[in-house]
Design a protein around this nucleic acid. Structure first.
Lengths: 211, 211
DNA sequence: CGATTATTTGACTGTTTGGTCAGATTATCG
DNA sequence: CGATAATCTGACCAAACAGTCAAATAATCG
């Protein structure tokens, strides 16, 4: 049963059965973050108590405070992880706009179906305290600006049709950001297939010569 | 100042200055729902206290319980209102799939930029208690099925390109559902303009003969 | 007017839950 | 082993907040 496998894996991860891990502390933090991200996404931030997270990990609530200073910090780190995954992705500087955009969306879909990315979208930034909220907003904005620049580049180098980068980016992100609300990775469509479909849908409007 | 105008209007509405209204009770309920929807969308359901809503209306918290039996019921009615707005919209049975879809999206954009629709999307159903959550999910599903049927019709009557109605609908709704997260009706783009852009983006993938 | 009903509210309660803390347990290492 | 540090936890606290209730006020109507 998949559920029990997950539980076993989680317990093993927590107890440090993975021998070659050097930094237990950092590793356990990661396990907390992943678990929290999953529960936050499923039940919502405010419907999830710290005890819920602790129970899932078979530890006591105060133990969480050994690794994080607040519930808010947990959510912040989850979301920052998702954002960083996008920001540190390499971009081929030699590719034209169209190709860069396709690569960008491929990474974006992968990011967003991951626990952290899903939590970034489904939980949103509203639960965060103002300071942290601004941080995440800033990160999200950076990601958006990357796409906008690629769109501009594509229009200029003629690899895509002339579009308003601001508006186009909004609709495109919308189509992709909604994925966590309906996509289940255990269904017919695997992540690769999803990415293909998503890219096809979202980029059709960018084609110059129709086909 | 727009804010103060809103406040005055709200107070007037509450106090029943609108003379020709017959049913004060029903009217005040509506005012509560609109106000709640706005605050829920802005701050999130759990960040909004009933006192917040009451304060905005210049009434006391217990007064709200004269009109609604719980916070949950308020959210439920807000979301049901949005859904009903879509479900009761007329569909031209003589139009082909393409035209029906365009009309559908136009109404959908109007619904979603409204307080109720925005709250439906931004607050989501997770805060609702299970029974009510199912109700709203069911309504949303009905809306989705309407679009799917139109897509199927369009493919069959040849007015749109052959697409998988299920997947296409998901991406299309995504692009539109994300609107509340970025669109401000007080900016350059008015609702009509937004609807045009949205429909253009979302329907480009449905065009058979390109152009 | 007086009486009946609808509307409103100040004061209160019960519960939930994020967060704390002192002490227990376990691991590390000289 | 013994001591020092890291990890973990049971018991507790304080604040926030949905919801209650008895009583006050306002509206309706004979």
């Amino acid at each position: 049963m998949a559920v029990n496998e997950t539980k076993v894996a989680r317990k093993r991860a927590w107890q440090g059965a993975i021998q070659d891990a050097d930094d237990q502390f950092a590793m356990k933090r990661q396990v907390v973050l992943r678990t929290a991200a999953q529960i936050f996404s499923r039940r919502g931030f405010h419907q999830t108590t710290l005890s819920d997270i602790a129970d899932e990990l078979h530890i006591a609530k105060p133990t969480l405070y050994h690794y994080f200073k607040s519930k808010d910090e947990i959510l912040l780190e989850v979301q920052q992880a998702a954002i960083q995954q996008m920001l540190e992705a390499p971009v081929d500087p030699k590719a034209n706009g169209f190709e860069q955009i396709r690569g960008f969306f491929h990474r974006y879909v992968e990011m967003i179906v991951d626990d952290f990315g899903t939590c970034l979208i489904m939980t949103g930034v509203t639960p965060l305290e103002p300071g942290n909220r601004s941080l995440v907003r800033k990160g999200s904005k950076s990601i958006e600006l990357i796409l906008r620049d690629m769109l501009k580049r594509g229009v200029e180098d003629g690899s895509i049709a002339p579009v308003d980068p601001k508006i186009a980016a909004k609709f495109m992100f919308g189509a992709l950001n909604w994925i966590p609300y309906w996509y289940r990775s255990d269904g017919d469509l695997d992540v690769e297939g999803l990415a293909d479909r998503a890219i096809e849908f979202v980029m059709r409007g960018l084609l110059k010569a129709p086909g």
